[in-house]
Design a protein around this nucleic acid. Sequence first.
RNA 1: GUCCCCAUCGUCUAGUGGCCCAGGACGCCAGCCUUUCACGCUGGUUACGCGGGUUCAAACCCCGCUGGGGACGCCA
Length: 483
Amino acid sequence: MTVRVRFAPSPTGYLHIGGVRTALYAWLYARQHGGTFVLRIEDTDVERNTEEAVDVILDSMRWLGLDWDEGPGVGGPHEPYFQSQRTSIYLEHAEKLIEKGAAYRCYATQAETQALREAYEKEHGHGGFRFRSPWRDRTDGDPSQPHVIRFKAPTEGETGWDDLVYGAISYPNDQQQDFVLIRQNGLPLYNFGAFVDDLTMGITHVTRGDDHLVNTPPQILLYRAWGVEPPRFAHLPMVLDPKGKKLSKRRADQGVLVAVLDYRDAGYLPDGVLNYLARLGWSHGDDEIFTRDELKAKFDWSGCGKTGSRYDVKKLAHVQGTHLRGADDTTLAKLVVPHLEARGLKVDASDPRLPAAIGPVKLRATTLADLADGLDYFFRPDAEIVFDEKAKKKMLVPDAAPHLEKLASLIESTPFEAEAMEAATTAWLEAEGLAIKNVAQPARVALTGRGASPGLYETIVLLGKDHALARLRRGAELARSGG
RNA sequence: GUCCCCAUCGUCUAGUGGCCCAGGACGCCAGCCUUUCACGCUGGUUACGCGGGUUCAAACCCCGCUGGGGACGCCA
């Protein structure tokens, strides 16, 4: 049997990072088995549904590189992939279930059921109301009158399944009620919509958050009523915020970015985000760092944990930084350009100075934004480099001026190559009895404007002779005139 | 209230009866490297929720408790 999995987000205006982990696992499973990954939009909530909101989902998925084989933009044999465009399909299936005697038309009004529920809750002080429709076994209703379609749920026995991550789970049927399939307005309710879509789209493995555990028995019951075997289910524990609470979509608490596109804008690498997410709730022995291909090869349901996982910003940074350092300099050059532009620096991605400088700078960066920050002074005009005031005040003092000038003239008269410059400088320092620290730090500030940077000679070479000399001499002036 | 699920370092986790007085990673603390900051390396810190069983032997199996989470809609 060919694996067919789906990811079915709602267009809420952003793609939730917790949802992405579910999507990732499904995608990995599909890719690993040469299966099909279906993207379906659950947009039955018309109020929230907008075209832009759908685009955000698609852009997020594309940025992450989670490509889909069927769905918006690519089509497929089970179109449409928007629930809002499938209402007639749901209706047809509901009618069919009525014919089979597995569902019925219920003419009780929402006000009636609501009143019963409230009365029950008032008396018992808690939810637990089960609506027993008087229409369950009646056939004398008038279908032209407003009604909902309810499922005729069993009241005895139990419904269970073998979950791919939780193992055997079973719910007693007496907890079930005759849940609504189709609302009075003709639109399906979540459980029914999901069932019909998964059924008609031939989904073989349903993956979703463990908050859907209770939705599984009703859906299994629907498959049985329809006369087919249910798909396999894989429920995944939730991603929690650092405090252990449900990761809120509304507020990005504790430094957690919730919307996928925010990761892109903050300069994260998709592979780093995916690696972190994969390890959050899944493990493969002691392995921590995975490339995308390694994830595809090694992912398995049995490696998934059963407990909710707290989001750890520090570990994300570590994993992300590891991916950044491991990335190819030319690749990073292309990716960092927009972030340089955001800083007002126009640099051509093919500029050979870019990958050259990225080499050392990426060792000091976590995101592309950090990278751009570390690259900043290499590409800013000499007169416009931004000084860190603290570093400037501490290092560009009058005493440093002659050292900077001497260093400049040494560079001028020495082959412009790191080793040669280091040798020349060391010789001079020894002769004068100076510590390199006293020269290197002021020079670093003069050259970069900062108290921290890649190695001194490395920086000088990267800057180029003219810029290096100009900056050192300007630094000398600044030092002399006040510090 | 009823039902379902879960329970190892601060965090993510390894562990499926002896290899575990519990391993890795992040964090944190030392130290090394060093012209700064990083990177890298070395070492340290800290955990099997509690109580009963089963067994020669339990983090691993069973029961109870406690503690979390989820659900009980004409929301998804």
